[in-house]
Design a protein around this nucleic acid. Structure first.
Length: 423
RNA sequence: GGGGAGAUUCCCGAGUGGCCAAAGGGAACAGACUGUAAAUCUGUCGGCUCCGCCUUCGAAGGUUCGAAUCCUUCUCUCCCCA
């Protein structure tokens, strides 16, 4: 199977700007780029598909360029936003760029062969004067066409929102990026999400007017979930790649809990698990869904890739412990690892010795929003001490309930853990 | 500028003097079932020192034994006409 066939098979190609691109993809040797907007100091799982595509292309002998939008990040892409964006400070942008660049390093090879590079468009925009930009670049854009763009149109039609001249200019900047990257690095292909089509085409047009070699674009489909909800959000919000923002444990659980109807598609788009193996997993989902072999494969693969094999081993151990039986006899090191990401609270040891009401403990650790709620949880059988249900309203926690020298594990519901630490 | 409608507990939305912490639905949270899923069913869903008390119905005052409900002023939203 050729690379382009595989990419279609995996659902990584929504459309390309030209058929000519496909044989070039199969051949290798292109230099391509993807732009990243530094709106946060981390990327999120929604962007994993692009990474995967970049890695697949690199494996085929293409050279990836990750473009950090140091300049464009100061402006903001009008697409997809209903409102004018808040401008970020320069220091914040710097920090975000560094965070994102570090994450890209986990997915691509920066040494040997067709090595990956990271560039920042601030480097070329900072030296350009307004006049020369208008004369050399702005000249090639028709406002008539620009206002036809959906991203602009929707903002113009929306009452009260409007669009600033600044954001309106965004597409010129992105188009210019493509041309500069061609001139400086020989980039001839731009990848992006389905929403980037317009911006990519702008770059290609500009290239043609300025006499570059033919440029190409390829967009990825939007990742959707079977139930129509947006992919990439969990109850606790966006699932990030950075372990500081989303713990490896949550990250792993997020993928483990994907619906049967989505999991096969996600395996294809987000991982490099061979298609033959995915086919087998698909059969298993149908035959024995309760084993969730496909979800496990997905969660393992991505956790290993994003957080590393050690982190994977830890979260797997943690998952076993958290969804297992009664918790007892843990050593300090293990308990802090497993419960690192769980809310915890430090309490006086004397309170435990005196007998600490379970109601107070649930409230203080934040497992219940009020004591009344804690009371109801216990009455309904939704409160657990060391994974054992505790229905006695007046229950007092005592030193004998400790599972380690100074910890005690509370749980509400199926999987909301909280750790009490006594000093 | 003129006329009309409205602002209720996370959201939608009933309630027009006591039976109102306020119907119903949604969301959320627990329990059962299960596959750490979906669907379904059950329960909870302002706070507390919880058979009682306290704080809520846009804001501030007032009438009343008693107000989300009546009166006054204010703030905001929506609709129609010019």
């Amino acid at each position: 199977m050729t690379l382009s066939q595989e990419l279609f098979e995996r659902g990584l190609i929504e459309k390309t700007t030209s058929e000519e691109l496909l044989p070039k993809l199969d051949q290798g040797g292109l230099t391509f780029y993807v732009g990243f907007d530094p709106t946060a100091d981390s990327l999120h799982v929604g962007q994993l598909a692009v990474f995967n595509l970049m890695a697949l292309l690199q494996a085929q002998g293409h050279s990836p360029v990750g473009l950090m939008g140091g300049a464009t990040g100061m402006i903001g892409d009008p697409g997809g936003k209903s409102q004018e964006r808040n401008l970020l400070s320069e220091a914040q942008l710097q920090e975000n760029i560094q965070g994102i660049a570090a994450q890209i390093h986990r997915f691509l090879a920066f040494e040997g062969g067709p090595k990956a590079r990271i560039v920042n468009n601030y480097d070329w925009f900072k030296g350009i004067g307004f006049i020369s930009f208008l004369r050399d670049i702005g000249k090639h854009f028709s406002v008539n066409q620009m206002i036809q763009r959906d991203s602009v149109k929707s903002r113009l039609e929306r009452e009260g929102a409007g669009i600033s001249y600044t954001e309106f200019s965004y597409m010129l900047l992105q188009a210019y990026d493509f041309v500069v990257l061609f001139q400086n690095h020989g980039v001839t292909l731009q990848l992006g999400g389905a929403d980037q089509w317009g911006n990519i085409v702008s770059g290609i047009d500009l290239g043609r007017r300025l006499g570059t070699a033919p440029l190409y674009g390829l967009t990825l489909p939007l990742i959707t979930k079977g139930d129509g909800q947006k992919f990439g959000k969990s109850e606790s919000g966006t699932v990030w790649l950075s372990p500081e923002k989303t713990s490896p444990y949550e990250f792993y659980q997020f993928f483990l809990n994907q619906a049967d109807e989505d999991v096969v598609r996600f395996l294809k788009v987000l991982t490099q698990v061979p298609l033959a193996e995915i086919k087998e997993l698909e059969a298993q989902v149908l035959a024995e869904p309760h084993k969730r072999a496909a979800q496990k494969r997905l969660a393992e693969d991505l956790t290993r890739r994003v957080h590393g094999p050690e982190a994977l081993a830890k979260v797997q151990r943690a998952s076993k412990m958290l969804f297992g039986e009664k918790i007892s006899d843990l050593d300090e090191a293990l308990i802090t690892q497993i419960f690192k990401d769980v809310p915890s609270v430090q309490l006086e040891r004397a309170r435990l010795e005196a007998g600490l009401p379970l109601i107070d403990a649930l409230f203080e650790v934040g497992a219940a929003k009020s004591k009344g709620e804690a009371r109801k949880l216990i009455q309904q059988g939704g409160a657990y001490v060391n994974n054992e249900p505790q229905k006695e309203l007046e229950f007092l926690l005592r030193p004998e309930h400790l599972v380690s020298v100074r910890h005690l594990v509370l749980r509400t519901g199926k999987k909301n853990y909280a750790l009490l630490e006594f000093s």
